[in-house]
Design a protein around this nucleic acid. Structure first.
Lengths: 196, 196
DNA sequence: GACAGCCTTCCTACTGGAAGGTAGATACAG
DNA sequence: CTGTATCTACCTTCCAGTAGGAAGGCTGTC
């Protein structure tokens, strides 16, 4: 109780770490119990079913992302800088190896095999990210800080796809730098200072 | 014996379909047995362990890809057209919903949780795809059929990342068209006829 | 041609362990 | 004395994998 982290927070944190390495079917309550230092049954007290656990995990993940982006928007005004900060966030996560993959990108690849409640939340995360990126693209097109070659929504989807694909490649090659290498030309292309 | 498909081929085919929906941990020998119409133990006769099964599946997958690309290279000479054909292949797979995801892209997301033998083969697939795409980019840069804004290898990695990310988005949104929508501007940008 | 042996394929039946989940008791705080 | 958090003990189901045998085809030998 007097801990900095509540038990349910610890459960969620270790579940996230486990999902990031092996996906939804890649972890069990026993794995979490071993990490957190409690018994399986105690986890069921906090999250009656695995579906409950992962659903609240994804909801929390989106809420954190929303808060993080809201904070970023207050610090950074320039749309290009926002995209760079977004890419930089993931680059750091991948290189830290502490959070080497976006939970939702990983869960999205398993979508058809996920419990419907979890799948719905994963889809909601994609819509949220897409909506935000689209708004950044729109602002960039208006104030000239971004040079778009397609509609803002299409550019946003393409940007998000690049980020997710680059994560996958970084993981496949085992070389985190690959992420930045792939994102650099993508950001370069969106920059108005780029030649031709 | 007189079948068009051998039993082991049928096992591999249904394993591939199952992996494409739920990944490595998302299927069991029992699932395959139900589809193929034999007993679990019979699968063990063909593939002693799950690792064996998936490893040969990935090896076969890469061999098929190599053969497919070799055939494509004989039909199509123009590098831009090669990239379009490559993207078109995946677009068709996704829309057919028969093969809605690249097996290796899916397995790559689970890499840290995969048996080492399988992980090694998945990595080999990524290296193969990257090497081929790099060679296409190099030829395109030489004969002017592609307009690169970075080194061929970087363009190849970025292109592959776009394809994989677009697959993920198409799955997340449940709308196959998203794949083509994302790939279109990517191909457009590589085309020499594109303005600026 | 018939038998014998072998190989392949598939089967039933089983094992040990891990999965998600439940029942019910205990400890303790407000 | 009620609610929260944790425990032990257990359940059912599923998992990958094994043992051993039945069926049938292929081949060599007499």
């Amino acid at each position: 109780m007097s801990n900095l982290l509540t038990t349910s927070d610890e459960i969620l944190a270790s579940a996230r770490a486990l999902i990031m390495t092996g996906g939804y079917n890649g972890f069990s309550y026993a794995d979490i119990a071993a990490v957190v230092g409690i018994r399986k049954a105690s986890i069921h007290h906090h999250f009656p079913s695995k579906t409950d656990l992962v659903r609240t995990l994804v909801v929390r993940y989106r809420e954190d992302a929303e808060a993080g982006i809201a904070g970023l928007e207050q610090q950074v005004r320039n749309p290009l800088a926002l995209l760079q900060a977004y890419a930089g966030h993931w680059a750091q996560c991948i290189e830290d190896a502490s959070r080497p993959f976006c939970v939702c990108a990983l869960l999205a690849s398993e979508l058809p095999a996920l419990p419907p409640e979890v799948a719905a939340e994963v889809k909601a995360f994609f819509r949220f990210a897409s909506t935000w990126l689209t708004s950044v693209m729109e602002r960039g097109a208006q104030d000239g800080s971004l040079k778009l070659s397609s509609e803002p929504r299409v550019e946003a989807e393409a940007f998000m796809a690049s980020v997710h694909g680059a994560m996958l490649s970084a993981r496949a090659y085992g070389t985190p730098e690959v992420f930045a290498t792939i994102l650099a030309p993508t950001l370069q292309r969106l920059s108005p200072t780029a030649a031709r």
